[in-house]
C-alpha cells in the first residue's frame, strides 16, 4: 500500500527565499531603495505587493486592507536601513506585514469593533459544490478564526511557508507554530463541517457515476 502521506502531498511549496542570483538581485534593489531611488522602490513594491496585499486582506478584511498595506510598505522603506540581510528579505517583509496586522487587530478588539466580514451572509451561489465554491467558503471561515490561528494557517497553508519561517515571522517557537497550525485546521474543519460533507458526497456520487 502506498503511504498515505505520499498520496496526500501538499503540493508545490512556495519558498520565500530564492537562489543566489535572486539574492544578488534583491541586494541591488535594496541598495537602490536605500538611496531613495524611485525605480528601485517601485521594483521592490512590484515584487511584494501581491504577497503583502493578500496577507493583509485575509488578516484584516477588505475595508482596512488598503490603508494597512500602505502602512506596511511605508514601514518597509523606512525600516530598510535596519534590514541586516541575515534573514531573507521576504521573511523580513512578511514579519513587518504580520506585525502591522496583528497590532491593528489587537487595537480593534480592544475597541470592541467587530470585523465587518463576520456575519456577512455568503453569496448564494447555486452550485454548492466544487472547488471555487469551497474556496469561497474557506475564505469566509478564515475570517472567523482567532487571529493567531489565522496568521499561522495563512502563512503555512495559503502562502506555503515552512514552520521555521513562520516562527521567525511571528516570533514564536517552531513547536508553537506547528501546534497552532493543527488547532487552526481543526477549527476550520468544525467551521466548514457541512461544506466539507457536501463536497465529499458530491465526489462520492461522481465516483459512483464513473464506476457505473
Amino acid at each position: 500500500m502506498t503511504p498515505v502521506s505520499k498520496a496526500l502531498g501538499v503540493g508545490e511549496a512556495r519558498a520565500v527565499d530564492g537562489g543566489a542570483d535572486e539574492r544578488a538581485e534583491e541586494q541591488r534593489i535594496v541598495a537602490g531603495c536605500l538611496e531613495g531611488n524611485r525605480q528601485a522602490m517601485t521594483e521592490l513594491y512590484e515584487r511584494y505587493q501581491r504577497r503583502v496585499f493578500s496577507l493583509v486582506l485575509r488578516m484584516v478584511g477588505s475595508s482596512e486592507a488598503e490603508e494597512l498595506a500602505q502602512d506596511v510598505f511605508v514601514r518597509i522603506f523606512r525600516g530598510l536601513p535596519k534590514f541586516r540581510g541575515d534573514a531573507a528579505l521576504g521573511t523580513w517583509i512578511y514579519r513587518l506585514a504580520m506585525n502591522v496586522c496583528l497590532s491593528f487587530l489587537a487595537k480593534r478588539s480592544r475597541r470592541g469593533q467587530i470585523d465587518s466580514r463576520i456575519g456577512q451572509s455568503p453569496e448564494p451561489t447555486p452550485p454548492r459544490v466544487g472547488n471555487p465554491w469551497l474556496r469561497d467558503q474557506l475564505e469566509r471561515a478564515l475570517a472567523e478564526l482567532p487571529d493567531g490561528y489565522r496568521a499561522v494557517l495563512i502563512l503555512h497553508d495559503v502562502e506555503g511557508l515552512n514552520h521555521q519561517e513562520i516562527a521567525e515571522i511571528i516570533g514564536c517557537r517552531v513547536g508553537t507554530s506547528k501546534s497552532q497550525l493543527h488547532k487552526a485546521r481543526m477549527r476550520m474543519r468544525k467551521l466548514l463541517g457541512s461544506e466539507l460533507d457536501a463536497e465529499r458526497e458530491s465526489k462520492v456520487i461522481k465516483a459512483s457515476e464513473v464506476g457505473a
Partner: peptide, 10 residues
Amino acid sequence: TASALDGRDA
C-alpha cells in the same frame, strides 16, 4: 483548497 486560493493585487 487553501493552497489554491488566489493572491490579490493591491
